[in-house]
Computed example of a mutant assay.
Amino acid sequence: MITNVKNKREYLSKIASYLLELGIPANKTVSKDELSSVDKVDEVRAGTSNLVNLPAEKFKVDFSEKDDIRFGSYIQGLYDTNNEQVYLWTSKTNICGLYKVGSIKDVNFSFPFGLNDEGIIVFLSADLKDKLLLDFSIDPNGNKVVEVEAQGLNWPNVKY
């Protein structure tokens, strides 16, 4: 429950766009009833503090490559090593709450470049053992790219 007036105002100003933002990678219409409390966000964030010490693997590809078969095979590999449900996390999650999808392979990775203003979306396994961060931007040559970082116990072992 949101008690602080400033936080409530921020929540009300962001919730509609957040639900639309989540709906694209979730591949469905998301309602606010499906979101966790902000207290749960804080709890999950605290539970991820161990991830920073775990292995990480990064690679960068053209943004359009996330729609290709090779990226799909990579996602299948992530699923094969950890098939837990995943939280979708963006900057608005901190104010509006967490949303959980079935697994990493249930995510629609064909989202547009302008999905959110920050150009970042994180997929966190519900068991808090693995994280996939997608950071999309425009490189110095004007190309749309996505940097992919897998961190945790399982996902860094999957090679692209």
Results as ranks from 00 to 15, higher is better:
M1Y: 10
I2P: 07
T3D: 08
N4D: 14
N4P: 10
N4R: 02
N4L: 11
N7K: 10
R9S: 14
R9N: 08
S13Y: 09
K14L: 07
K14H: 14
A16E: 12
S17I: 00
Y18H: 08
L19C: 01
P25G: 03
N27F: 05
T29E: 13
V30W: 05
V30N: 08
K32D: 11
D33L: 13
D33Y: 12
D33H: 06
E34L: 03
S36E: 04
S37D: 15
S37Y: 01
V38R: 02
V38P: 04
K40V: 15
D42F: 05
V44H: 05
V44W: 06
R45N: 15
G47P: 00
S49Y: 09
N50E: 15
N50C: 13
V52G: 09
N53G: 05
L54E: 05
P55W: 08
E57C: 01
F59I: 09
F59S: 14
S64Y: 03
S64I: 12
K66A: 05
D68M: 03
F71G: 09
G72Q: 04
Y74G: 00
Q76C: 04
G77E: 06
G77P: 05
Y79I: 01
D80Y: 06
D80F: 14
N82K: 12
N82M: 01
N83S: 14
V86K: 03
V86F: 15
L88R: 02
W89Y: 09
S91V: 01
I95E: 08
G97W: 13
L98K: 08
Y99C: 02
K100I: 07
K100Y: 10
K100P: 00
S103V: 02
I104L: 09
V107H: 05
V107C: 05
F109H: 11
S110P: 05
F113E: 08
F113Q: 10
G114E: 07
N116K: 02
D117K: 14
I120R: 10
I120L: 10
L124Y: 06
A126W: 01
D127E: 07
D127I: 00
K129V: 06
K129T: 14
K131A: 04
L132I: 01
L134W: 07
L134I: 00
L134Q: 14
P140I: 01
P140G: 01
P140T: 14
G142D: 04
G142R: 07
N143Y: 09
V146N: 04
V146I: 03
V148L: 03
V148Q: 02
V148W: 06
E149C: 06
A150E: 05
L153E: 10
W155L: 15
W155A: 12
